[in-house]
Design a protein around this nucleic acid. Structure first.
Lengths: 202, 202
DNA sequence: AATTACATACCAACTAGTCGGTACTGAATT
DNA sequence: AATTCAGTACCGACTAGTTGGTATGTAATT
């Protein structure tokens, strides 16, 4: 049985398995054996690619971050000309994502950092970096929309970006608790309403 | 050495230890031995009080819920007459709580349900119950405020309650990621602004 | 020939949970 | 008032299985 030897592919398989398992069971409850089994790789293979479980966690956070960048960069709302429309398009896009399976739309970074923030500094840092990068990306559109529609507002674009992410992360928690995205959808609609009020057309 | 034998006290010690440890390390990473050590109880004592670790998780969620009821029932803003003021008072109260240590203000239920929702049904249920009860409590003031200030609004009081909790839960995630409450404070101020806009004085 | 990319077997430490025993309590019996 | 006795509260050693990680081997690639 000739095994294909493709280092990058094996690594990606491990990271994908880690992403899915950690989203479902959390970081601590996901074992290296779990990940190996799901990825079809043995322990030896795992530790060839990653020095430790923690380092895999960091790598998984980075990979998730990159995946997110691609998804949102390719999303249809990016084509809209008005930054306000792009921002609301982003929210609508995230609401639409709630139609998928719960394990598909929740955030690996938010899930991991909850458990890891005090005990796994590297993982915490990687999650923070990923979430902060996403906020910064969003903040561009927010800043542009502010200049157009609310130049005198006292809030900062960055704080609005973090607020958006807070609502989304919190909405995921309720989706998990209720095993249904209904409440999350409602929360994101409130968020949308708030953003509309921040950038009101005169 | 005469041991004081107070069953309830021992149980409470175990639940308090569990609360603090799980908030810091998460549910899975917190071992029964950890909890026993922190509570000054042996394994035998632990399993005398709880059938399993999961059952402790459920009990800890319930205890946390009860504690929250007491804290908010005794909070100063409850004395305000206007339901809108009470609601904003609640937000201000939660913002003030962010001045304490991170392990003191985060939510055990939100932390646990993230890890446990798919693998520990009893824990998930207990977390859901606690969070839902808190939302219902909030929803009373929201409903009263709505009747006074926004009788024709299309949103439901319950959905606003869940939105508030989503923001708070999400804010905790960022407080953990950043190891600082600054972003959380900002997010809760945005939340406050939104609530003000929902219940505008004419 | 050397290096890379795995597989296999293994280990020490840790895991939730068990079990036999002990110490104290309070009510019933003597 | 002393004694018995059942029940509760708790201890701590133990177990079977799991954990992250290692040591060593080997086939493919360079």
């Amino acid at each position: 049985m000739a095994r294909t030897r493709n280092s990058l592919e094996t690594r990606t398989k491990l990271l994908d398995a880690a992403r899915d398992l950690i989203r479902a069971k959390g970081y601590s409850a996901t074992t290296v054996d779990d990940i190996c089994l799901a990825a079809g790789v043995t322990k030896g293979g795992f530790f060839h690619h990653f020095e430790s479980k923690d380092q895999l966690g960091v790598a998984a956070a980075e990979q998730f971050s990159n995946m997110a960048v691609q998804i949102f960069a390719a999303a249809p709302y990016q084509a809209l000309e008005d930054p306000r429309d792009r921002l609301l398009g982003y929210i609508d896009f995230r609401i639409a994502m709630l139609g998928a399976e719960i394990s598909q739309y929740t955030c690996l970074l938010g899930t991991m950092v909850q458990e890891a923030y005090a005990t796994h500094p590297g993982v915490r840092e990687a999650c923070d970096a990923g979430m902060t990068a996403h906020v910064r990306e969003l903040a561009h559109d927010i800043e542009d929309a502010k200049l157009l529609y609310a130049p005198k507002a006292s809030w900062t674009s960055e704080s609005v970006g973090y607020f958006i992410q807070s609502v989304i992360q919190g909405a995921f928690i309720f989706a998990k608790a209720k095993q249904s995205p209904e409440v999350a959808v409602q929360s994101m609609m409130h968020l949308r309403r708030y953003l509309e009020s921040l950038f009101e057309h005169q």
